[in-house]
Each structure stands twice: as structure tokens, then as C-alpha cells.
Design a protein around this nucleic acid. Structure first.
Length: 716
RNA sequence: GCCGAAGUGGUGGAAUUGGUAGACGCGCUGCGUUCAGGGCGCAGUGAGGGUAACCUCGUGGGGGUUCGAGUCCCCCCUUCGGCACCA
């Protein structure tokens, strides 16, 4: 069927990530990461319903409660596997600069996703506690304005301070309410600056002054150190919190133009330090450097970099995925499956539907689970989770180059010869998933010497979606146009042509059934060019044309043909703008009609050349029609063995042009003149034009602007 | 809130990167072919005014630069996408 549609795949390179021949190597990749210390296991939080005793997806938690039974959700910590993508955060960020041929917006999305913050981690002593708390800040210059400390509710120090405080019940219930809000997404949609004072103070290491310690859910345990120094005068969130709880707001940065902290908001811009002791008067950059240096000298601070990017949780409690090739031995701990025992095959004696109890379907197969420990030979159990399917797709392009090799995942020599991928095409929805994961995996393989390049995709093109009635055309929306409804009456070429014609491919486009017929009509006209002139077009066109032997109409068509070649080749090569390439071909076809209507001869070299070019340029878009017409014009071999026509620059320009004559920038007249008429002559023609004479009424122009091959503008 | 993209006829979209706005297609109107429909062909089709030649306005809105702005600069509005209490 694909062939019938004019779509051709090289099936000898087909790979399927669910086949053991493929996922064996996905497992090898996992083990390589493990051996490099980049695959690790740690407890990760999941949504847990204590009544149903099940893990829930975020979407199944509504207002912090179980969607089915209404029970309040708890946060559980289960052991999950992670890939340490953060080890490559800097490389992933820096090398975005080398991806000149990637769309700007994808680069920006990845930048924002990784989100690097340069700052200082500062130690605050806590009164009445045996150890101190570190906070991370990107604004150490504002430390003199730090008037309180806020801990994440999940910060270890919180538990420390709660224990024995006499407020255990009260504080724990507040924390669990916040947790529920966070899990349900309520905290995201209705952010609040609620917090609780923890009955203790911390010492600001710069001012030595005691500042109150709060806990509040707006401080996240996952970022930085899970604690902040709050500078309400220069951070809007801290400002709102301070306002709510009546905490002091001390201004320490004043901008050059006097912008300052207001009664209703903070000032987070640049400026000069005030109220900051010895640092008063310093600019922000200098203050950052000097204060950071002093904190480091005092042993109270350390420069640090944080990223928003988190390590990649790859454990999935699903059947369809590569089983994680690890074994849990009661004696030896977590042991990797030896390479020569790969693949760890998916069991075929289980129900592969996702289960409600949070367990992997693989766990229900005793035959799969029980295994001898590779190290001690004792009874052990396999890991029953599978990997995120994004792991499979992070390296498949390497496998395409040696798809049947059963000794290696991919051959370095072949990969180095062919990769990175010259042109990658996909939807923008992959911007921060697949495209980031694939970059990470290639960087990892590069760091281990498995490939010699550090980026997988040299050029990236993100295509838009086809919409119907304003919504994305998709199976799930049920609004797809079945290809056969177009192919049966009008042919696969018509469908291909319309898809290419209906808009630039990087943009979303609206499907229009009626507009499809326009493409069908055009192809019929192409066919009729041949049918009506079959006698003249029966032989292959192969001669070289002497333009001086052509009459005016023939020469015009000859030029139009060369112009069309230039436009089509440029539109397709530069930006995949098939839509404008096709309209250029329609113009050529219209010019051929006009030529014949005006009495031109089909047997003339100009017409036959035009037809030859038309079908050759169309061939990639309408292979069936072009191949058929190629054969009927007497060619033996396929049109796809013919070279693309080449435009002769000597004939891609018109012999004359419409000189536009403006007076005060308004068009008042036109005159056809030969190309490259010199400026003086253009000016003379414009001034001599009767209509212009009339408008000027003998006045002398203030100025005359002449643009070669385009226009004359007379300013009066 | 932050970041990004985009706003052009009834419609999908063009515009040589500062130089004729609306190419090409769809739709619509009229005419021809026809019993009719379809198909095909011809002509017209941004808005307003004028018998006409022509004139005025017009690329989300408002300013600006320029002989000249859809295109460059500033402010604003709308839509879509991403991130979102990231310290």
C-alpha cells in the first residue's frame, strides 16, 4: 500500500524497539551508563492512596485526593532507576550554541528547561540546633537584606525542629495539607505565601543578627538546598511573605534612576548597594564577587551552580519496554546482568496490561523474577521494571546504520562516517523530551569513546500540524481524513501535492477538502499539456537551445522556465517551502497555456524544454504522473535517474521590467523598459512621462530617488 | 508572572529581506459550451468613491525613523505554544 501511495522505505533497515534483537542493546546501553556511574537507584516520590493501596498518576489525583475513593493522597518513596543527565547539564547547555541550524524556539526551550543558575551556597547557624542550614542564592549581594530564613517543609531540619517542640501534631498536619496541595497541583494553580514560624532563629553570617526561621511550601526541597535566605525588599515572593507575616523589609539595593522598593512590591533590578556596611556603594556585579569572596574566606559560603534540570527517572511499571538488566541478590546487593546474558527477555506468561497496584506486570511472572545471582550463584530476583520508551528512541539512529549486527549495538566506524544526522525532522512536541534525551545519550557515548561526535542531529526542522476545523488532525480526535477518500478519486499524487501545497511546513495548517481539487485540476492540466501536444512531445528532449534562434514569445517562455528551476530548487533546498515551489510550477504551466493560446508552436524547443522541466521538477512531489509522462515522452529509464534541471543564471532574469514612477511615494505611472536601464535614463523616462508632466505642472522636483530595475520616486 | 512564535482579502497563504501589498490556489460573480448537472474555457473579484480616465483608504491598534514601512525602532492589544513559587 505504501508503494501504491508513492512512499518508499528501505525495509532492510527496519528496527523495532520491542524486539529482543533491539532491546538487547538498549539494555547494554543501560549497563554502560551503570558502569560509568550514571545509572543509579534512589527513592523517588510517588502518589499513594492508602485505602486502595495503589500508586496513582498525577492525573488521577484530584484536589489532593484519590480520584476513586476520595482518600487523601500520601507521598510514598519507592526505589526507582535514574540516569544522571545532570552530569551533562553544562555540555547540553553550552553545545546548544553549536546548533546553528536548529530552530531558535527549540534551543530556547531547552535552555529554559536546563535553566542554569550561578550563585552561592551560604551557611546559616540555627539557634538551638546542633547543625546549620545551607541556603542557595543567586543574589549574595543582597545578604544584608536577608531578614528571615525559609525552609522547605520537606527539609530535614524541619523534622529536627518539630521533634520535641510540643507542636508535633499541629505542624505535621499543616505539612501533610501542603503535600496534598502540591501533589494535586493546587499549589501550582493557586500559589499562596502561607508559612509557619518554627520558634527559632538563624544567624545572618554577614550581619551576625538573628533572623526568624519559617517553613513554607513556596520553598521547594528539589531545588537548590531546599532553604532560602529571604530578602523581601528585592524578591517579590519574599516580599509577599514578609508583608503577610509582618516581617522587616530592609532595602539594600537602590537603582541609579531612583527605582526602589515600594509599599506594594519589591525591586529586583540592578543598582547600588545601601545599608550593607563596608559594601555600600558597590555595583551589583562587584558586590556579588566581593561578598561571595568574603563568605568563602570566612568558611561560610561556597560558589555553586544549580540547574532546574533533574535526573531522568527511567523506571516504568509497564510491560512494553526494555527490562532493566539488574538483579537483586540478598547477599551481593544490586548486581548487573553480565553482557553475555543479554537480552533479558520480556516474559510471555503475563498479562501485559498496566496493573492497578503499582507493580510491574513483569513481577507477576515467577519464571522471570527468580534467577541465580551472577556473582554468588545464590537465589536472587530480577528487577521487574522496564525502561522508559524514550530510552529506546535515544539511540535508534545509531542502530539504523548496522541494523542486523549481533555483536555490537552499533558500529563506530559506520556511525562516524554517516552521523550526525544531516537533517532531522519532527514535531516541536519533542523539544524537551526526545531531543534532549538523544543529545544526552550521544554525549554520554561520546564521552566513553563509542562515537566521535557529540551531537546527534546537525540540522533540525520542526514541522507544524495539520488541523481540521481548527483542531489537530489525529486518530484520537477522530477527525482524520482517510487518505483513500482522496487517493481513490484523485490519486496519490494529488494528495501528496496538496499536503505540500497547503502551507509552509513549519507552520500549522488548515485542511481544506475543496482546495485539494485545485491540485487535482493542476495535475490534469499538466497531463493535457502532453495529451494535446503528444505529437510534438513524443521524443525525449535533449537538445541544447540557442536563445538567439527563438522568437520573442519563445524566449519569454524559455526565461520563465529557467526562472522556475531557480525558484523551485531554492524554495525546496533552503526551507522545504514546497508550497511556493508548487505555485512557481503552476505559473510555468499557466505560461505554457498562454504561449499556446497566443499561437506558439508545441514543437518549438522552448515549449518542449518547458514541459521537460515541468515534469522533472514535479517528480519528487508527484512521482506517478511524472514517471508516466517521462515514459510517454520516450525515455527508457526512470525519471528518478535523471538529474535535476539546472538554471542558467543568464536566463533567470526578465529582459524588461515595469518601471514604477512615483510622485511623493505614490504610484502615478508605469512604463515598460529594458532591464538594467541606467539611472539617468530611468529618471529621464520618468520625467518625460505625460502623466508625470501633468502632475508636476512645471515644478522642479526637490529630489529624485532612482532604484535600479525597480522605480523612480519624484519628491516635490 | 517569565520565555518564545504569530496576527496580511470571504479563505489557505505570497511578497526578490526597506521599493508595484495580496503571487499561486480555494471560494464567489458573470459569460460561453450544455436539456441539465459535472467538467472545461474566458472575464472579474481588498474596501470606498467616480459614467470614465482615475482618486482615497488599506497588512491587529497607536506613535516614530525614512523619499518610501507588511518588513526597522518604541508602546499597547489579541491568539497560540513552552515553563511556572527554581531562590
Amino acid at each position: 500500500q505504501f508503494h501504491h501511495w508513492g512512499v518508499v522505505y528501505d525495509w532492510t533497515r527496519e528496527v523495532a524497539s520491542c524486539e529482543p534483537e533491539y532491546y538487547r542493546w538498549t539494555q547494554w546501553l543501560f549497563l554502560e551508563l551503570y558502569r560509568a556511574g550514571l545509572a543509579y537507584r534512589k527513592a523517588a516520590s510517588v502518589n499513594w492512596c492508602p485505602k486502595d493501596k495503589t500508586v496513582l498518576a498525577n492525573e488521577q489525583v484530584v484536589d489532593g485526593r484519590c480520584e476513586r475513593c476520595g482518600t487523601e493522597i500520601e507521598e510514598r518513596h519507592l526505589d526507582q532507576w535514574f540516569f544522571r543527565i545532570t552530569a551533562f547539564a553544562d555540555a547540553l547547555l553550552d553545545d546548544l550554541g553549536t546548533l546553528a541550524d536548529w530552530p531558535e524556539r527549540v534551543v530556547t526551550m531547552q535552555k529554559n528547561w536546563i535553566d542554569k543558575s550561578v550563585g552561592v551556597e551560604i551557611e546559616f547557624e540555627i539557634q538551638g540546633a546542633s547543625h546549620s542550614v545551607n541556603v542557595f542564592t543567586t543574589r549574595p549581594d543582597t545578604i544584608f537584606g536577608a531578614t528571615f530564613l525559609v525552609l522547605s517543609p520537606n527539609h530535614p531540619m524541619v523534622e529536627n525542629l518539630i521533634a520535641g517542640s510540643g507542636r508535633e501534631t499541629e505542624l505535621r498536619s499543616v505539612i501533610s495539607r501542603w503535600t496534598a496541595d502540591r501533589l494535586s497541583g493546587k499549589a501550582r494553580t493557586e500559589p499562596s505565601k502561607e508559612g509557619v514560624f518554627l520558634d527559632t532563629h538563624a544567624i545572618n553570617p554577614m550581619t551576625r543578627e538573628p533572623v526568624p526561621v519559617y517553613m513554607a511550601p513556596y520553598v521547594l526541597m528539589e531545588y537548590g538546598s531546599g532553604a532560602i535566605m529571604a530578602v523581601p525588599a528585592h524578591d517579590q515572593r519574599d516580599f509577599e511573605f514578609a508583608t503577610r507575616y509582618g516581617l522587616p523589609i530592609r532595602e539594600v539595593v537602590r537603582s541609579a534612576n531612583g527605582a526602589t522598593t515600594l509599599p506594594t512590591s519589591s525591586y529586583s533590578g540592578d543598582g547600588t548597594l545601601i545599608n550593607s556596611g563596608a559594601f555600600d556603594g558597590l555595583g551589583q556585579g562587584e558586590a556579588f564577587a566581593k561578598i561571595a569572596a568574603q563568605l568563602e574566606r570566612d568558611g561560610k559560603g561556597k560558589r555553586r551552580v544549580h540547574y532546574r534540570l533533574r535526573d531522568w527517572l527511567i523506571s516504568r511499571q509497564r510491560y512494553w519496554g526494555a527490562p532493566i538488566p539488574m538483579i537483586h541478590c540478598p547477599k551481593c546487593g544490586v548486581v548487573p546482568v553480565p553482557d553475555d546474558q543479554l537480552p533479558v527477555r520480556l516474559p510471555d506468561d503475563v498479562d501485559f496490561h498496566p496493573r492497578g497496584d503499582g507493580k510491574s506486570p513483569l513481577a507477576t511472572s515467577d519464571a522471570f523474577r527468580t534467577v541465580a545471582c551472577p556473582t554468588c550463584g545464590g537465589a536472587a530476583e530480577r528487577d521487574t521494571d522496564t525502561m522508559d520508551t524514550f530510552v529506546d528512541s535515544s539511540w535508534y539512529f545509531l542502530r539504523y546504520l548496522s541494523p542486523r549486527d549481533d555483536r555490537v549495538a552499533f558500529r563506530k566506524d559506520v556511525c562516524d562516517a554517516w552521523l550526525p544526522v544531516d537533517q532531522y525532522i519532527g514535531g516541536v512536541e519533542h523539544a524537551i523530551l526526545h531531543l534532549l534525551y538523544a543529545r544526552f545519550i550521544v554525549k554520554f557515548l561520546h564521552s566513553r569513546g563509542h562515537v566521535s561526535f557529540a551531537e546527534p542531529f546537525a540540522r533540525l526542522f520542526t514541522q507544524g500540524m495539520v488541523c481540521k476545523n481548527g483542531i489537530k488532525m489525529s486518530k484520537s480526535k477522530g477527525n482524520v481524513v482517510p487518505p483513500d477518500t482522496i487517493i481513490t478519486p484523485m490519486g496519490a499524487d494529488t494528495m501528496r501535492l496538496y499536503i505540500l501545497f497547503c502551507g509552509p511546513p513549519e507552520r500549522d495548517t488548515e485542511w481544506n477538502d475543496e482546495a485539494v481539487e485545485g491540485c487535482y485540476r493542476f495535475l490534469n492540466r499538466v497531463w493535457r499539456h502532453f495529451e494535446a501536444n503528444a505529437h510534438a512531445l513524443a521524443k525525449p528532449f535533449a537538445e541544447s537551445i540557442d536563445p538567439t534562434a527563438l522568437d520573442d514569445a519563445e524566449r519569454a517562455l524559455f526565461r520563465k522556465t529557467h526562472q522556475t528551476i531557480a525558484r523551485v530548487v531554492a524554495d525546496v533546498n533552503d526551507h522545504f517551502h514546497f508550497n511556493t515551489a508548487i505555485s512557481a510550477l503552476m505559473e510555468l504551466s499557466n505560461a505554457m497555456d498562454d504561449f499556446m493560446t497566443a499561437g506558439g508552436r508545441a514543437a518549438s524547443a522552448a515549449f518542449r524544454f518547458a514541459f521537460d522541466v515541468l515534469i522533472r521538477l514535479l517528480a519528487p512531489m508527484t512521482p506517478h504522473l511524472s514517471e508516466e509522462l517521462w515514459e510517454r515522452t520516450g525515455h527508457g529509464r526512470s525519471i528518478f535517474s535523471a538529474a535535476l534541471p539546472v538554471a542558467d543564471p543568464a536566463y533567470t532574469r526578465d529582459e524588461s521590467f515595469d518601471l514604477v514612477i512615483q510622485v511623493n511615494s505614490k504610484i502615478r505611472a508605469r512604463e515598460t523598459v529594458p532591464a538594467d536601464t541606467d539611472a539617468e535614463r530611468m529618471k529621464a523616462i520618468a520625467m518625460a512621462h505625460p502623466r508625470i508632466q501633468e502632475i508636476l505642472e512645471g515644478r522642479t522636483p526637490k529630489r529624485v530617488v532612482v532604484i535600479q530595475n525597480r522605480l523612480v520616486n519624484i519628491v516635490i
